[in-house]
């Protein structure tokens, strides 16, 4: 009897969740699409710095995410100091750019110091050694930040009005558009820089053969330093933009770094366009994997790693990566 009373309610309820018709489903679809692309934009932005350093040194800088985190803290303090209590508007945007500049300089210096202290002495060592050193630096940086800045997340207020732009119940925020635009611009700048400038040429030469480059009058130490500085500047830019959304906390680099690493490998590590492609693909896969394929959210992070494993099996050099013979 009781079952008879309860059942109709339960069945009705089970069918109820999607009340909208075709229009509603399409709106949800586009919203998921936008969510995926913008999440991917975040991964792409962080992956650019990763891939840049890897392209030159064939070495994954696991401390990249933590340099990003330090840059975000420095940026936040500068931003708040300049802005005072001003609300969103022109002055806050100005303060944000100054803070970003300070953060870029800080990260460049930090990146170069890390390279000097933790990687340079190991340049002739086995390949595993600098990798372990990088993980050590990563832990050191995140724990030092926790000690100095405390454990709570800090919010960086949007310098502009971030009210969403809605169209037929699909919304996107100005911040999300900005992340996508900056990812695209950063990618274009890096491709231009590496391929068209003199320093870029020197970087490519160093990447191909350090000894030969040295014979041609290039100072490999300087070039490697410059590479780290540029990679870290992109970490600073990514950090400032991303932390507007996800807040700033000492372990933020860990999560971002992992995903960006996967994005970089999937796209073809060392390839700059590949990092952006990999990032956006990962964002879309994570979003649609859960929303459409109904993969349980508990496995959300596994999506990235399953994709990573598949790519490594099918095309180890990544989607855009070129198959290069191992140097003997």
């Amino acid at each position: 009897m009781v079952a008879n009373v309860i059942c109709p309610v339960r069945i009705a309820a089970l069918h109820a969740p999607c009340r909208q018709g075709f229009f509603g489903i399409m709106a949800s679809f586009f919203q998921h699409f936008i969510n995926g692309i913008t999440l991917g934009g975040v991964y792409a932005l962080v992956a650019l710095g990763y891939t840049m350093v890897y392209g030159i040194l064939k070495f994954i800088n696991f401390a990249h995410g933590d340099i990003l985190m330090w840059g975000s803290y420095v940026g936040l303090f500068t931003y708040n100091a300049i802005r005072g209590s001003a609300g969103p508007g022109a002055f806050s945007i100005f303060a944000f750019f100054v803070a970003m500049l300070v953060s870029c300089v800080f990260c460049a210096l930090l990146g170069m110091s890390v390279e000097r202290v933790a990687y340079k002495p190991l340049r002739k060592a086995e390949r595993l050694a600098p990798l372990l050193s990088a993980i050590g630096v990563s832990y050191f940086l995140s724990n030092a930040a926790q000690l100095l800045f405390g454990t709570q997340s800090r919010k960086m207020d949007y310098p502009f009005d971030n009210s969403p732009i809605s169209f037929l119940s699909v919304s996107i925020t100005p911040h999300q558009l900005m992340v996508l635009a900056v990812s695209a611009a950063s990618m274009a700048f890096l491709i231009f820089f590496i391929n068209k400038t003199k320093t870029g040429k020197a970087i490519r030469a160093t990447s191909l053969d350090q000894d030969a480059a040295a014979l041609m009058g290039i100072n490999p130490d300087r070039i490697i330093s410059v590479t780290f500085a540029i990679g870290s500047v992109f970490a600073a830019i990514a950090g400032m933009l991303v932390s507007l959304d996800i807040k700033i906390y000492a372990t933020m680099g860990m999560m971002l770094g992992m995903k960006a690493f996967v994005a970089a490998v999937v796209g073809g590590i060392g390839d700059i366009a590949g990092a952006v492609l990999g990032g956006i693909m990962l964002g879309l896969l994570e979003t649609f994997g859960i929303a459409v394929l109904h993969i349980p959210v508990g496995y959300k992070d596994s999506i990235a790693f399953v994709v990573l494993i598949l790519i490594l099996i099918v095309k180890p050099s990544g989607i855009l990566g070129k198959n290069i013979r191992e140097k003997v």
Binding site: S28, I246, T251, T287, I290, V297
Partner: peptide, 21 residues
């Protein structure tokens, strides 16, 4: 809907919740 510890992006789940009754 569920999420993981340490997640910072809940837009997928929220987009689904938005269409619920």
């Amino acid at each position: 809907e569920t999420c993981n510890i340490g997640d910072r992006d809940f837009r997928t789940q929220l987009t689904r919740l938005k269409s619920s009754t």
